[in-house]
Design a protein around this nucleic acid. Structure first.
Lengths: 351, 351
DNA sequence: GTGAAAGCGCTAACAA
DNA sequence: TTGTTAGCGCTTTCAC
């Protein structure tokens, strides 16, 4: 299939009348090889079209210089951006990347991890699937001491690192903001409370209510996958309520937008009748009318920092051994929650 | 790093008192091995936690059972969906996947391809970057007879396969629809005309104008990267025109939406003053008000078919050797172009 | 139906 | 500073 034979270090060695090991060393700038020889080797190798055979090398070194990434989904702005951040860093350090998607399912996540493990990746970056309950599939990795860095949707586990934002605080801020705007009956659209991101946002929501003397009402908590359809479903639940809520805090922008569109179809005015806040600051938040108040999530940075941490772990070996890194977020206030007085102009609270 | 030694076929062989070659064959159900022996081998291998070492295997077989994917960007709904389709098929056939993104740059595309080539992928799926002009970096692949399947943004080249939709027809239909709605001065937001997708859509636009007796005016062609910013820029150009256009056909939804948002900010009524049609049927097209008329692009199918074709090529070897597959698209008419009479209800033209 | 043996291309310990 | 050599774990030809 692949046409003719590949050029190997033996070919280069023979052509230069030196040994293969010298070529091997010269190619990677081993200081024991005379500079002149190194140059000669590299020049000829290049000219002959030599390409290092990764398999032979990995087989021998028992390292692949490849990092595995497992994300819950690819077609989300947040994840795509985080991956771009990861890619940038791993590229810089000469690592390859294998990206796989668990499609929000625990079952598929197990397969992904085992496939990556089987591919002998040197380390793993992972954001958990929506419904992952059992973390047994990670034991495989822990037993082999394969470094794992969680990002965004993280798990508590012995010795692994996590990169997140303070979801509790962000949830608290978003809810407090709604309360400041005069909301008293605030719906919370949450994701699976097993996931840190959603449980923390929920806790922040509850605390903000409590701190403002509003009693938490479990009927106002709607848990779902937070996609377009479940957003529509939530809107329908809301429309059927005897007494309508005056605020909605959705744990992502997708569901916030879906709810808004649906409520608007039913003639409900946003923000006047219902104020809506989302989470993630996806581009769609600036398309919907009124523009969506949301929490800016540093997706790219999360990816970059997770990748950097993993590579540090891989190289510095044990040094630089933190447990959690928390990045900054920002509440971005836009029209979907601006109910105070007549001055209903667009404003980005921070920037 | 990886803890203790891995289990190899030698360990299994020794434990069973048979030879490694028998184990190797037994593991892959080689018919020459007695069924009983095969079962025994597989049972023990499993019990001992044996995992095939892909490097040794690839090194020996000179095939990696891995497919490389190069896409122009990851954070687009279209690409993410296409990749999901690719993943589904490759998984089914036991192929691994290495996904990389050229970030719309020719330079990065060259790197991606050479990295994948270097990783000795068995075949390549690729959608070209925005500004790729020179196809020299593919020679490397062609010389080694590495199968390549282009999808969406394809290239003419000896012996490669392509999976696309009929962009010319889609462009023709979208433009004709605008004309039917009474538009006479129609802006076309195009991407780089080097890319088949954009040049074809443009040709369709021109032909529709011609067929309706409208003279093509080069001033109405705006070429850009079709992202959010260039959409805003286009809106500003439009706003500065002495005589405003009454229709816009944008070659993607992102730019269509950006233009709409910006024109609306300036107080322009859509569709009454300007009708807007996009391309791709991204979710955002149903968020924007009025909902965006667009062309439904079968992203998932494109991915699935491209992957299937490549795998066929890889296995059937030379059989099933088409040059181009053209999938069906659909014009989806929504409110952003419905200017006829008072009946301005939402309709999905097909479905 | 099973085994022996060579070798894929590279690396690194050891020797010189 | 360079060379020799022994594998990494698997597959496959050839032999029995």
């Amino acid at each position: 299939m692949k046409g003719n034979r590949e050029v190997t270090i033996y070919d280069v060695a023979m052509a230069l009348n030196i040994s293969p090991s010298t070529v091997s060393r010269g190619l990677k700038d081993h200081p024991h090889i005379r500079l002149e020889t190194r140059e000669k080797i590299k020049a000829l190798a290049n000219e002959m079209g030599y390409q290092r055979n990764k398999f032979a090398s990995s087989l021998r070194k028992k390292r692949t210089e490849t990092i595995g990434v497992v994300v819950p989904k690819l077609n989300s702005y947040f994840m795509a951006t985080a991956i771009a951040g990861i890619e940038k860093i791993t590229n810089q350090h000469g690592y390859g990347l294998i990206i796989s998607s668990s499609q929000e399912s625990e079952k598929k996540e197990v397969t992904c991890i085992s496939t990556l493990f089987n591919s002998r990746v040197d380390g793993l970056l992972i954001s958990l699937a929506y419904d992952t309950r059992d973390l047994d599939h990670f034991n495989l990795l822990f037993n082999k001491e394969l470094p794992v860095v969680f990002f965004d949707r993280v798990a508590e586990c012995r010795g692994c690192m996590s990169v997140v934002i303070d979801n509790y605080k962000a949830g608290y801020e978003a809810t407090s903001h709604l309360i400041e705007q005069g909301c008293r009956k605030i719906i919370h659209l949450a994701g699976n409370l097993l996931r840190n991101v959603y449980s923390e946002r929920f806790k922040g929501y509850r605390q903000a209510l409590a701190d403002n003397g509003i009693k938490y009402n479990p009927d106002l908590l709607i848990v779902s996958e937070l996609n377009n359809q479940t957003g529509i479903d939530a809107a329908n639940i809301i429309l059927r309520m005897r007494k309508r809520p005056d605020g909605i805090f959705a744990a992502n922008d997708t569901s916030a937008v879906a709810v808004m569109v649906e409520l608007q179809k039913a003639g409900i005015k946003i923000p006047d009748e219902v104020a809506v806040a989302g989470f993630n600051n996806e581009p769609v938040s600036q398309v919907i009318k009124p523009n969506l108040t949301t929490v800016d999530y540093p997706a790219r940075e999360i990816g970059e920092i997770a990748a950097t941490s993993l590579i540090n772990k891989l190289t510095n070996n044990e040094k630089f051994d933190f447990s959690t890194i928390i990045l900054k977020h920002k509440l971005i206030v836009r029209d979907s929650t601006m109910r105070r007085s007549g001055i209903n102009i667009t404003m980005e609270s921070i920037r």
